[in-house]
Design a protein around this nucleic acid. Structure first.
Length: 430
RNA sequence: UCCGGUAUAGCUCAGUUGGUUAGAGCAACGGACUGUUAAUCCGUGUGUCCCUGGUUCGAGUCCAGGUACCGGAGCCA
């Protein structure tokens, strides 16, 4: 039999095909039924008529419920009235399994209910579209780095210490010792960059912060390139190029999914390089002028970030932050030692920080001082300091939060839908 | 952790100044219908009113504590 997927249905017009999948919905009207069929690739209307499939088969089809699994044989025809312009006139409907009382019915549901049924919610149109876009973003990220001679070098998930010494970590028992789940692969990335020149790691990160907002997950994916012989300017350039590449890739491969999600594509079309660049000090001036209560040296909260980002259509690059509010490994600006050569990229429309990066400090004495200042144990960082003892070079890198990029490009109000099984402060199930 | 809000049928919600038998729509189930798009029409059922305690002749409704969830803050990608 000619087994086909819905995505290729156009190529089989007037031919007999076999479809394997599930019932998305089923309406009956006497001797004819309209079965919206789902196969993981899309939706397709199948006409199930008594005259075509026979009385016995038609009787059994009456039992079909939402999400029952079926194998349908029939002929593909063009029809304007059908979703997508094509439909299948069934000649046989084989019931594989009858689904009973499927919980996600065609009506409104609350988010908590849907998240409790996430394993089933994934079958719904919008969730399916989001995860398809996520997949294409991941592909774009990997294509971008692979085609620019970066080597994917994985960083460990079990780590013996706090990498940045700032965030709260998940603790776990490691044969009697305490291990932590990695919050970043950053420090290991620096080791790889010295070995491979251009490195990236891409995997899950874990943060035990009790953040309860639409922008936070406790488990999320971050891509972190690290580049040897690279200054902050080149670092910014890589980040900008990556974002532009992702946006273009999504626009060319995911238009249908974005439509399904109701995303305003015109907004995404306005994203163009070069992105506006502002120093931290510029931002403080703007915020003060616009009535915010901030002083030079304060970290920005999300209302401040959103205010800056809303002034532009493209992501905004903010650079040269006060060293006190940034991680110990960021390099001081030689022209002003109160600031570091760090940068954040803020997504438009209030999606917040999607990239954070910096040129790294190479001076071992400064690093030792900074480790002391942060109250970190020098012993834990000894291997990291080796990177400054043996062929230290200027280098830079950044981290990009995958889920925030997915949320932004899909136009979602909450990050929890950007990942198959979201882990948040209040959710570990399913 | 802090501030604010919500909790009633499988789901989404209404429920008056505290009042006797707690409702609607959708879903489900049975039936009619050969072009439906969340079809329509007829019929059928549904409750730990979040939990514990209190006030009261009487609590879904008022009070206290707890729990869960939602939104925001801080923290951050």
């Amino acid at each position: 039999m000619n087994k086909v997927f819905i995505k290729n249905i156009k190529e089989h017009v007037d031919k007999e095909v076999t479809l394997k999948g599930w019932v998305y919905s089923f309406r009956r009207s006497g001797k004819i039924g309209f079965l919206t069929f789902r196969d993981g690739f899309g939706l397709l209307q199948c006409i199930v008529a008594k005259n075509d499939i026979g009385e016995e088969n038609f009787e059994s089809v009456k039992k079909l419920t939402q999400e029952s699994s079926v194998v349908i044989e029939g002929k593909v025809v063009e029809n304007e009235r059908a979703l997508g312009g094509y439909e299948v006139i069934a000649s046989k409907v084989e019931i594989i399994h009858i689904s009973k009382d499927y919980p996600i019915t065609p009506k409104e549901h609350g988010t908590d209910f849907l998240m409790n049924h996430r394993h089933l919610w994934l079958r719904s149109k919008k969730q399916h579209a989001i995860l398809k876009v996520r997949h294409q973003i991941i592909k774009a990220i990997r294509d971008f780095f692979d085609s620019n001679d970066f080597t994917l070098v994985d960083s460990p998930i079990f780590t013996p210490n706090a990498a940045e010494g700032t965030s709260t970590l998940f603790e776990t028992d490691y044969f009697g010792k305490t291990a932590y789940l990695a919050q970043t692969g950053q420090l290991y990335g620096e080791a790889s960059a010295m070995a491979f020149g251009r490195h990236y790691n891409f995997g899950p990160c874990f943060r035990a912060e009790k953040s309860k907002t639409r922008r936070h997950l406790t488990e999320f994916w971050m891509v972190e390139p690290e580049i040897a012989y690279c200054d902050i300017e080149e670092d910014i350039q890589w980040a900008e190029d990556l974002l532009v590449y992702i946006v273009n890739h999504v626009m060319s491969t995911c238009k249908d999914h974005l439509m399904t999600l109701g995303r305003d594509i015109e907004v995404l079309k306005k994203i163009k390089a070069p992105f506006p660049r502002l120093s931290y000090s510029d931002c403080v001036d703007i915020l003060k002028k616009d009535g915010f209560d901030v002083e030079w040296g304060d970290d920005f909260g999300s209302p401040e970030e959103t205010h800056i980002a809303e002034k532009f259509d493209s992501p905004v690059i903010v650079h040269r932050f006060p060293s006190k509010i940034k991680a110990f490994y960021m390099k001081r600006d030689p022209e002003n030692d109160k600031v570091v050569l760090g940068m954040d990229i803020l997504a438009p429309e209030g999606y917040g920080e999607i990239v954070g990066g910096s040129e790294r400090e190479t001076d071992i004495e400064i690093l030792l001082d900074r480790i002391k200042e942060e109250g970190l144990s020098q012993e834990d960082y000894d291997w990291f300091l080796d990177l400054r003892r043996f062929g230290s070079v200027p280098h830079s890198g950044f981290g990009m939060g995958l889920e925030r990029v997915v949320a932004w490009l899909c136009g979602l109000t909450h990050i929890r839908q950007t990942t198959p099984f979201a882990r948040t402060m209040g959710r570990l199930n399913p």
